[in-house]
Design a binder for these strands. Structure first.
Length: 209
DNA sequence: GGCCAGGTGTAAA
DNA sequence: TTTACACATGGC
């Protein structure tokens, strides 16, 4: 296998790239909720994250400003279903405050934040940072996760470095944009293609992996 | 009852 | 630079 387009074709043949039910896959893409979800979903099922997000929503805490001011104890209680709730609550609050301090509001954050800034935050590793860049900020980056690793292993591929795998995944897409355009019609956004590709890998992993 | 999920930080060898 | 461990819930 020379590049990740083989994986793309595999998913297409499985029917995973025909219907685009949720084009951007991450719920409420482009909103602050993605940032919160990126931390909540660490080592946890999304179902539990939904519960935690719902609790936050009910308390009107799903905004950058509200979360930054929220009591950490209250926060940890609300996100309890997602596990590691003490750690996650502390990190969420600190992150919200740092975003306000360095970017003033979420719109500025979306426009100006970079990978380096995200990676310097407590609680944001490469996967979470890339998810935020891709699904909250619409940057041209393809996140890789345990599903990606698992699927590739089936193809006999293993990467020891996260970034090595990510670049390999991205390169396979970028060098086959013409073929991908045939599938997605007039779609020209690299971000959307990356997001869909990643999303479909996870969907496949959940349903058949 | 054990295993695991859309990881990350820290400490020790 | 690698490995081990803590963080914690709830569904199967």
């Amino acid at each position: 296998m020379q590049n990740s387009f083989k994986i793309f074709e595999f998913l297409k043949n499985k029917g995973y790239l025909k219907e685009l039910r949720d084009p951007l896959w991450w719920p409420n893409s482009g909103t602050f909720e993605v940032v919160v979800g990126a931390i909540l979903t660490q080592q946890t099922k999304w179902q539990k994250v939904e519960k935690a997000l719902e609790n936050l929503k009910n308390e009107q805490l799903l905004s950058l400003e509200a979360l930054a001011e929220c009591d950490t104890k209250k926060l940890s209680t609300l996100i309890k279903p997602s596990g590691f709730y003490n750690t996650k609550a502390k990190r969420l609050k600190l992150l919200a405050n740092n975003i306000l301090r360095d970017f003033e509001n979420f719109e500025n954050f979306k426009e100006r934040v970079d990978r380096e800034w995200l990676l310097s935050q407590k609680g944001l590793g490469k996967e979470s940072s890339d998810s935020i860049l891709c699904y909250a900020c619409y940057r041209d980056i393809l996140p890789v996760d345990s599903y990606t690793n698992r699927l590739l292993k089936r193809f006999g591929y293993e990467f020891s470095e996260y970034d090595e795998l990510r670049e390999w995944m991205e390169d396979g897409v970028l060098s086959n944009l013409d073929k991908i355009a045939e599938i997605y019609g007039e779609e020209k956004s690299i971000n959307k293609i990356f997001a869909r590709f990643h999303g479909k890998i996870v969907e496949y992993g959940k349903e058949e992996g």
